[in-house]
């Protein structure tokens, strides 16, 4: 419970903090993202219903923070990130038992992959809206840079949250499958 509350607070804090992190010059001016790393931790730690609520919360706040309304036109609508995080969270849930056994590298890899996927899908939508597709080294680093950064900071996030009380211990639900649940 404590971890869930801290995760919710951390997502909001990260959204605010991200605005004050300057772009990284050697990564083509890419911006570093903290929210996907936190979401991946939540998606791998929380039970399915709680994860869904967390995904809706994270998606709503992300959309509100980045919403781009010009006149009557919205490039990526409110609700899109909610859908993204719901699907990504659902896809990560089968890895939850392994993660809760202490496999921190799952969170690390998932953070990098989810950050890359988020930026790639956002860029694809922006290109579709603007009617042309451009791709060069700068655009590549705007996606790959934050993904590499996510890979690097994910272990710190993992170890920070592991310092917090875990809440309800896990129990064995299936002898044959060996799945763990709360």
């Amino acid at each position: 419970m404590i971890r869930a509350i801290v995760l919710v607070a951390a997502v909001y804090t990260a959204l605010i903090a991200q605005e004050f992190i300057p772009p990284v010059g050697f990564l083509g001016g890419a911006h570093l993202l903290l929210v996907p790393v936190l979401f991946c931790y939540g998606a791998l730690w929380l039970s399915f219903p709680t994860m869904l609520a967390f995904a809706l919360f994270t998606g709503l706040l992300s959309d509100l923070a980045f919403l781009h309304v010009i006149g009557d036109r919205v490039e990526i609508g409110l609700g899109w990130s909610m859908l993204f995080y719901v699907f990504v969270g659902t896809a990560l849930q089968p890895l939850r038992p392994l993660f809760r056994e202490g496999r921190w590298e799952i969170h690390c890899l998932a953070s990098g992959a989810v950050t890359l996927l988020l930026l790639l899908s956002q860029y694809t939508m922006v290109c579709l809206r603007r009617g042309s597709f451009l791709f060069d080294g700068t655009i590549f680093w705007h996606m790959a840079g934050p993904a590499v950064f996510a890979l690097l900071i994910a272990p710190l996030v993992y170890f920070f949250f592991n310092l917090l009380p875990a809440g309800t211990p896990m129990r064995q639900t299936s002898r044959r499958g060996g799945g763990l649940t709360r």
Partner: peptide
């Protein structure tokens, strides 16, 4: 249910989205 909630938000008009922001 989660998908329906997200789709409801997606169906908002630009003015409503601006008001939420």
């Amino acid at each position: 249910v989660a998908i329906v909630i997200a789709v409801i938000f997606l169906s908002f008009s630009s003015e409503r989205m601006r008001s939420w922001q």
